[in-house]
């Protein structure tokens, strides 16, 4: 048995988890916060009560996971799509670096944001 030299299974695990999370939860957030709220389809809760809701420990964990896992999911897909569309193996290393790097930075930022909310 040898240790794999390939880290794709590592990233794939987060891609998969992010795929599950984002497919279940992203659309409703887009609908609520991006369309229903700005277009005034509903009488919206006040800033204070929304903030209180987001500060609930479970809500913090949920929001962090939703953002971080969505980023890792997207990072993995974007990396492979670039390879598919450009047909160039040489772009894969830099693309992987940029995609996963972006997801890591976004995750750290999300962690701070959710923590200090």
């Amino acid at each position: 048995m040898k240790k794999s030299q390939n880290n794709d299974p590592f990233w794939w695990s987060f891609f998969g988890a992010g795929g599950v999370f984002s497919s279940f939860f992203v659309p409703i957030h887009v609908l609520l916060l991006g369309l229903a709220l700005p277009l005034g389809w509903w009488l919206w809760p006040e800033h204070e009560s929304l903030l209180e809701l987001a500060r609930h420990p479970l809500a913090r964990i949920y929001l962090f996971l939703l953002i971080a896992l969505s980023l890792f999911h997207a990072a993995h897909r974007i990396r492979f799509t670039l390879h598919d569309l450009l047909l160039a193996h040489s772009v894969d290393k830099p693309a992987a670096f940029a995609c996963y790097g972006g997801a890591i930075i976004g995750t750290l930022y999300a962690m701070v944001t959710v923590w200090t909310l």
């Binding site: 048995m1 040898k2 794999s4 030299q5 390939n6 299974p9």
Partner: peptide, 18 residues
């Protein structure tokens, strides 16, 4: 399984599939 994991987990293995 372990011997096949060595190949399929590596570059060129199953995780190249999209």
């Amino acid at each position: 399984q372990a011997e096949r994991h060595d190949v399929l987990l590596d570059h060129g293995g199953a995780f190249d599939c999209t």
